[in-house]
Design a protein around this nucleic acid. Structure first.
Lengths: 234, 234
DNA sequence: CGGTAAAAGTGGTCTGACCAAGAGAGTGAT
DNA sequence: ATCACTCTCTTGGTCAGACCACTTTTACCG
């Protein structure tokens, strides 16, 4: 017994989401474009999209398009951590999580990133380098996270992409405190950071998963060492 | 901010189900009749119905219409109890559950049954009386349960109606064993049964909740006494 | 560079039609 | 009385095209 056209479209769109072809936060293709792509009626598209919205996978806005939801967001309703809450202990915890997460993200991104994703990584890396001179600490922190989120987005693991997105958004002030605290105490951007970004980037382009994982983990470990040493100097 | 037409219809239909205006197992109004009743487009109706199907409240069949699902069925996936499994101990347990359930069902049905529901109860009661002569035990058991299910359906408590439906269908062979076992041992239909049905019926028609509850509970207690006495004779 | 307005894009709803599946009624045979 | 079969009607599924309402994007002006 074959499934209805609507059900087939539901599965097709669901697979796109699960396979990270449509990432959390990203716009889903418009209903009219789906009509053209799949050759079905707009009412059929609407029913399929409505089912995914109902199941919590999509957020649909009248006139505003449909977006893929972060499926973990509902399980993590904590508010964004404020600068005042960004204690040293919490900074260490966030770095621990990042070390575990970003190593694996880099590993799989090295192996799985598609052509367009690699190009996006290259463009973002160049943009990050070009802006390394003269940018404020806030911009540097944001550029760093944009780069890492791109890596997470390119590893084709919906959980890693979703967790990264939540981590970087909810704990942005903690991550920013790590960077700005280190800068305040050492007077300069730690020189290893740029080198490590380069190592991560080169491993990604070389599709060397092990090297990417090592470089990413060392990148975070290096930051943690700096953080703890700076805390000791006080 | 007002809700969409679809959302309004979803809530309207959901309320019908929760208020027992559309009972578990019953056919929902067809899509075309909803178009006429609510003055909205058929695609709007379809989207509303699809949402309720997706949430598990409805079962929709191509060409076969939509039916209200028993929301407890999914939590009670046990198969129907077979005649061989209908032990004396299980018969007693079923009677205990019936005593608790049917007393409350009768109470609220007495207070809440609508005009058409009272008419349906009256018609079913007359039909049950008319067929009391010459019917097989199986028919008598089924007529008895039809009457009690009607009472449950008329009490406007979705949980009571749903539990009753599951109890009468999954444990039909246990309930039938109670009746046929009593008949086998005493040689006749216990005379109190018809009188108790009459008492229940009269209390319902008089909208006497307390009397209905008492009569319904006594009806089951009487059946249990007979069952246990018959078991002792063996 | 910022603000505003217009245009374009998007979702929501509608009308009317046609296709496909199932339910119910009627009839005949056992 | 029951079962099987056929036909009709009802029901859901899908479609094309149109229009309304909301949001986003673009272009222009100060």
């Amino acid at each position: 017994m074959s499934d209805s056209l609507k059900q087939q479209l539901v599965w097709e769109l669901e697979m796109q989401i699960l396979r990270c072809e449509a990432l959390p936060g990203a716009r889903l293709e418009s209903q009219r474009r789906m009509v053209a792509r799949y050759g079905v009626a707009r009412s059929t598209v609407r029913e399929a999209v409505a089912e995914l919205e109902n199941r919590g996978l999509l957020e649909v806005r009248h006139g505003g398009g449909s977006r893929v939801r972060n499926l973990l967001a509902a399980h993590f309703p904590a508010a964004e951590v404020t600068p005042e809450e960004a204690t040293l202990g919490l900074q260490v915890q966030v770095l621990e999580a990042r070390e575990a997460l970003e190593g694996e993200a880099a590993y799989y991104a090295a192996l799985r990133a598609t052509g367009p994703e690699r190009e996006a990584l290259a463009a973002e890396y160049r943009r990050m380098q070009a802006r390394a001179v003269g940018e404020t600490t806030l911009h540097k922190a944001k550029a760093d996270l944009t780069f890492h989120q791109l890596i997470a987005d390119s590893c084709h693991n919906l959980l890693i992409a979703s967790i990264s997105q939540l981590l970087y958004s909810k704990y942005f002030h903690v991550i920013y405190a790590v960077l700005s605290g280190t800068l305040r105490k050492t007077g300069s951007y730690p020189p290893g950071i740029a080198r490590q970004h380069a190592q991560i980037y080169q491993a990604l382009m070389a599709r060397d998963g092990d090297a990417a994982r090592l470089a990413a983990a060392e990148h975070v470990a290096y930051t943690r060492r700096h953080l703890l040493e700076s805390a000791r100097i006080r």
